[in-house]
């Protein structure tokens, strides 16, 4: 009798545990149609996008405008375009909707501004088509004994060894130009590797925070982060001019933000394109991906740079397009002038 009771108890225990092991299916009511995917997209942005307050975007109103336009029988392209139009309301170059046939972009952050960079003008008239290239860097000593480094993407890997070679090669110059015009961003780790070569001591690089919940104002306390000069590697301490345009975006924007706080650095050119939110990516039920700004990165004063960073006061300058036809990059010319004359 006792044995039967034991077996019965064991059986009940097993049954209870196996029932408890069932998968908790939160999305069982979700539908993979246009309405379902629109609602999913809107909700993901609503719960994870980090600049609603800063940009004063009323996301509920946006839904009110766009939701009635969604039809389950609309084509994929039409639905994609509608979602892209809705996302444009966020005015954010880090917000993209990706499908197997297209990726949506918000272009206005640089389309409405001068290009302010012409690679051909620089390569032909300043570098004489004769320069060194490594790790995504283009570098050369200019005629005025000024070092010039162009870095077009922070996605290009940076090695300490390459940086040592470049900076030692340019060490005898009177100053250095770092050109990040057209640099659309990449890895923040590369920002640290590059920017720390111009620091002689531990430097406050900025603050980072993240969403702690679905509410628009649910943020962690800003966390201060620092860059240290790399031990055993060459540190460049002479004056540095950083050249920017509106296409200087995301990680490149972050690089400019850090460099601008250094005393020997002057930022010359146009306001950067911003993009200070670290983006996260999420799937939609139909397999499309939504990338959005998720974690704001603030500068060393605690300011948001989502809408860009101004050049150093007195150094805001656009490229003269007529002079460019004659082979002059007036932003680069201004940087050379500052490094040669100090003014």
């Amino acid at each position: 009798m006792m044995g039967k009771e034991c077996v019965k108890s064991l059986f009940l225990l097993c049954a209870a545990m196996l029932l408890h092991s069932c998968f908790v299916d939160d999305d069982k009511d979700m539908t993979d149609d246009a309405v379902g995917n629109f609602d999913a997209l809107w909700s993901i942005v609503d719960e994870h996008y980090c600049f609603f307050g800063y940009k004063e975007v009323d996301w509920d109103s946006v839904r009110t405008v766009f939701r009635p336009k969604v039809r389950n029988n609309m084509g994929s392209y039409a639905f994609f375009d509608l979602c892209g139009d809705m996302l444009d309301e966020l005015q954010d170059g880090h917000v993209n909707l990706s499908s197997s046939f297209a990726t949506s972009y918000y272009w206005a952050w640089f389309q409405d501004y001068p290009v302010n960079y012409d690679e051909r003008v620089v390569h032909q008239n300043y570098l004489d088509f004769d320069f060194y290239q490594t790790d995504g860097f283009v570098y050369k000593k200019l005629r005025q004994n000024i070092g010039y480094i162009y870095y077009g993407s922070f996605s290009s890997g940076i090695s300490d060894n390459s940086l040592d070679h470049i900076l030692v090669r340019l060490a005898s110059c009177d100053g250095l130009i770092i050109d990040v015009r057209g640099n659309g961003g990449g890895s923040l780790a590369n920002v640290e590797t590059f920017a720390s070569r111009f620091m002689t001591e531990r430097t406050l690089a900025g603050y980072i925070c993240h969403k702690t919940g679905a509410g628009h104002d649910d943020f962690s306390e800003p966390y201060a982060y620092y860059y240290d000069p790399p031990a055993g590697h060459y540190i460049y301490t002479k004056p540095v001019a950083v050249l920017t345009n509106r296409y200087t975006f995301s990680a490149a924007n972050n690089f400019v933000q850090v460099m601008k706080s250094l005393p020997q650095v002057t930022v010359i050119g146009d306001r950067t394109g911003g993009g200070s939110g670290l983006p996260f990516t999420y799937n939609l039920p139909n397999g499309w991906n939504i990338r959005l700004s998720s974690s704001p990165i603030l500068d060393a004063e605690g300011n948001d740079t989502e809408f860009g960073i101004d050049p150093t006061p007195g150094f805001k300058i656009d490229m003269d397009t007529v002079a460019a036809l004659q082979g002059h990059d007036t932003i680069l010319d201004r940087a050379i002038e500052w490094l040669v004359t100090g003014k």
């Binding site: 225990l13 097993c14 545990m17 994870h48 980090c50 923040l188 780790a189 980072i208 993240h210 969403k211 702690t212 919940g213 679905a214 649910d218 962690s220 966390y223 982060y225 670290l278 996260f280 998720s294 974690s295």
Partner: peptide, 26 residues
Amino acid sequence: QLSLPVVGVFVQPEYAESYYEVSLGN
């Protein structure tokens, strides 16, 4: 056999905390 952990420790970033932020020391 049934195994049922009761107490312990585990790692999990906050809601939308990036591993980049964790790598910075937070």
